[in-house]
Nucleic acid binder design. Structure first.
Lengths: 179, 179
DNA sequence: GTCTATAGTGGGATAGAC
DNA sequence: GTCTATCCCACTATAGAC
């Protein structure tokens, strides 16, 4: 059978999965082609049979992260409604659980060409529906992203009450939507 | 005269100034010790007579950036009062004018030990005074930082009306302070 | 305080055989 | 699709002469 699926040997998937593990456990500097190959059990040059270059591997990680986060946002917002606080707190949890992936996903320009269609919009839509306008959704997203980014970068003073700061922002944006 | 100032030969200052130029014009990857030395007109190893290592040079850039931004925030907030919108818009302008310095300043943990005393607090105080609590100030800062970060990273859609998003956030946080 | 020389490390990527 | 061998690059940092 020509098109037979050898399930255990889906190299591209294996590679992406390994890359994700390395990234999350050891940070972005640890994600090298050599290291990645070792994790998969092959030699570095063989990776280039599956991905054109390192950027393509990273792009796959970004796409995966965005799809996952988008799905979560959808699940938190429920059928119609849900509330901004729930989304914001979930967003924070995701970022704190996968800090390196989150940073990779957000710190560089998004290559929309190579991104599966709809991934971006699917994450944005619930927030727009909830807050009423795209401008409000963008401002609220920026707040959440800024909180996460500053928390991940260790920029708040050690004694800062971040839960309280989150609630202030959540309240502020919920209010703009007249809730 | 032993303590005479040879104005043209203040190497440490020269080095920091050159580093700032390279960083802003060519980005963080371009800031290497070789490149920096060339810009100053010496060889790379000579830099180590003035700075222990590269991290020390970067620390100097961060301190300079924070001091400058802190001074600006103070000037925007005036004697008593001023408004959050003015600070936020100025903050955005600073970040857009010096994107690479801004990112260097904010994307890694702050080494408070090696930072001149008061630099951090001087930037924060006006915002706390204006908004009433530290939690509100932190949330508002996160909003501004998030907007800037997403804008610099090219993460908003090309047609997004960022001015409008800024005004939404500014309004939301001004409202929390009861203004 | 500057130089030359160089150590030591690590990275991305390609050629060509099997 | 995997391998071995290797290129080529760039970086930080040190040693030791002047």
């Amino acid at each position: 059978m020509p098109g037979a699926i050898s399930a255990g040997a889906d190299r591209p998937r294996q590679i992406v999965a390994a890359a994700l593990r390395i990234l999350e456990r050891e940070g972005p500097e640890a994600l090298t082609m050599r290291r990645l190959a070792t994790a998969v059990g092959i030699r570095a040059p063989s990776l280039y049979k599956h991905f054109a270059d390192k950027a393509e591997v990273e792009q796959a990680l970004i796409a995966e992260g965005l799809a996952e986060l988008g799905g979560l946002v959808g699940s938190w917002s429920g059928e119609r409604g849900g509330d901004f606080g729930r989304i914001a707190r979930g967003y924070r949890r995701f970022a704190l659980e996968r800090p390196h992936l989150y940073r990779l996903m957000t710190e560089r320009p998004l290559d929309r060409e190579r991104l599966p269609a709809g991934v971006e919009e699917r994450g944005v839509a619930p927030l727009v529906a909830l807050l009423g306008t795209r401008d409000r959704a963008r401002a609220a997203w920026a707040f959440a992203h800024g909180m996460v980014q500053l928390e991940l970068a260790g920029r708040f003073p050690p004694d800062a009450d971040l839960d309280a700061a989150w609630e202030v922002g959540i309240g502020a944006f919920a209010a703009t939507a007249g809730v």
